[in-house]
Design a protein around this nucleic acid. Structure first.
Lengths: 357, 357
DNA sequence: CTGAAAGCGCTTACAG
DNA sequence: CTGAAAGCGCTTACAG
């Protein structure tokens, strides 16, 4: 009884197919893979046997012998959320077009886990897409299995070793500040991303440079965040309570910008007339919040798509002869969150001069 | 020269480690895997050799011989978007806790692709999580590799063959309509999901039953959608233009509900006072739109988490002795989109009696 | 056109 | 404690 169940459940192998079709395993393999040079009658009986046995090839075994998995490994800081979801969409789109599978993994923030995730890809994928804004090139290249083609997205890029693709954060920050100033903002604060994150750091630096140049502000208010909506809410509450005279906010990402707007609105602060808000990324929901969020559009999905294209090129041309390094320039998308009428609904605290009151 | 590059790039195998450490491959394997019964000196030299060679084990080969991949396959209708992103978050959370990797795949809508995706999992994963609201149990079970443990999420479930977990859509629809009626809505329309989708169908049926019972409406307005924001926008425009007297909308998912609200607001229709809107899912953004979206909370991430737990149980207990079938009941979350003051800003068209004018 | 054999990179009884 | 050998399920030169 036990044995019968076992036999019934056992998945059939190419050996079973060969035996059923009365041919060798080699012939079965050739027929199954549609190779030429197989007698029609042989092919027929093999395919029939396979169908009868409901044969499904063991891809692990196949890739062990072909050294090809038709799978791309993707290692991201997270697998969910507005931003990563869009990245995955782009990668998936490009992978699907080429008949490639995706092996996704995330690094859960720690260096140890990133190393584990990268190493776990060995022998299972043909190439790697890694987004690691938190880790420097050394950690990365030490743990990237040798000989595995890889493309680095948005990281502390070590040009030369791996192809890479990234966002021009500095240009983005500059454009955002320029826009806020053009809208009449006089005191602009920055809602920053996590420390140690390459993108966040570049955006903060770009912001500082821009407000120094355009507003002569060398010590702007910078609120440290972590890219989460909660951080945005906290910042919004802070700004609403503080009466700091801030009339414009440049947030390092959209998710925080949205949290910030929500908190400001709840506190009775009008966006954009009291405080104009600009985000970064243009995640899908940016257009659905009210007011719609002005932001620096990154074309996130396209970024993922381009990264996969780059990887394929790297794989096909062998050991990346000229290492590519693409830089994507974000574009300003103006929506209601920054469209100021020039009529603030509340007087600025600093007009009264008694800050903290 | 060519050869030198090749040698330099070649990834080292356990054989290289063994040779470097002057032990057999068997001993190297045991040392590397931390097995007991290895002389300390042997272990030491093996680990040193591995470090020196920057050895990374070939997981494909390992799982071929151990018949264990420590990877879970996940097949979803899509890998991105608010809903699937949350599902993935839950699955990832549970998988990470157990040290499991995720192999994600989507089915891009077609039956052929679903079959391919399911079969491609053979030999690469220890179990499968499948969400397939579009396909019936036969297609599914025909393509699920025999002997591969699986859990079906939200599908046309064939209780008995596979463990499953699903949402009580009927109860959810009923609760949504009950709420709208309690808010004073008299004419409720349904923004439906795609045909052939199990969840969508159950929600529509539940809606019909509820409005028939509570409002005596046996022929309610049902607008066919496809779960996309565009469909929601289209429905909102339609409702705004139609003067149909509709004062409540129950949408089959949040994303359409949000699109619908956006379109209604743009057309000058007040939500909730002219039209109250209730969604389904409680995706993360539901709380950030303005007005906040009332919805049936599904605890999406938890659904993914529970599904993985179920799968692990199935794998561990062998061939699922008692096939589990869990049903999750969604709960009503009231936000501003349905909090009516009783003061509509515009007169209902049907009050005038000249519909279409 | 076909089959026997070697090999992909591991692990694990089995002897010693 | 250690090593030689078989085996996981495939593919692919190599002979015939």
């Amino acid at each position: 009884m036990r044995e019968r169940i076992y036999l019934a459940m056992r998945t059939s192998t190419i050996r079973d197919v060969a035996r059923t079709a009365s041919v060798s395993v080699a012939s079965a393999s050739r027929a199954l893979n549609g190779h030429s040079g197989v007698a029609p009658s042989t092919r027929k009986s093999v395919l029939e046997a396979a169908a009868a046995l409901n044969y499904v090839p063991h891809l692990g075994a196949r890739s062990l012998s072909t050294k090809r998995s038709n799978t791309i490994g993707v290692v991201l800081p997270d697998l969910f959320g507005e931003f990563f979801s869009e990245i995955i969409r782009g990668i998936d789109y490009a992978a699907h077009r080429r008949g490639l599978q995706l092996l996704l993994s995330n690094m859960h923030g720690s260096e140890r886990e990133t190393a584990a995730a990268l190493r776990a890809m060995r022998g299972r994928v043909d190439g790697l897409l890694v987004m690691s804004p938190q880790l420097d090139a050394d950690v990365l290249s030490h743990n990237l299995p040798r000989g595995l083609p890889a493309v680095i997205m948005n990281g502390w890029i070590d040009s030369g070793r791996y192809a890479s693709i990234a966002i021009d954060n500095s240009a983005g920050a500059h454009a955002a500040v320029t826009h806020l100033v053009a809208q009449g903002c006089k005191v602009i604060a920055h809602l920053a991303g996590p420390e140690g994150n390459a993108d966040a750091q570049e955006r903060a630096l770009g912001f500082r440079a821009a407000v120094a140049k355009m507003l002569g502000d060398r010590d702007p208010l910078i609120i440290r965040g972590d890219f989460s909506d909660e951080a945005g809410v906290g910042a919004g509450k802070l700004l609403a309570a503080q009466h700091s005279g801030v009339d414009g906010v440049f947030s390092a990402n959209d998710v925080m910008a949205i949290g910030c707007m929500t908190a400001l609105l709840e506190a009775g602060v009008c966006v954009p007339d009291d405080v104009a808000v600009v985000g970064f990324d243009d995640v899908p929901i940016a257009r659905y919040v009210t007011p719609g969020l002005t932001t620096m559009r990154v074309h996130i999905a396209e970024l993922g798509e381009r990264a996969l294209d780059l990887l394929i090129t790297t794989i096909e041309t062998g050991d990346a002869p000229e290492v590519a390094a693409e830089l994507l320039t974000p574009e300003l998308v103006v929506r209601a969150s920054s469209a100021r009428t020039g009529n603030p609904t509340i007087k600025k605290a600093r007009t009264f001069g008694n800050k903290g009151e």
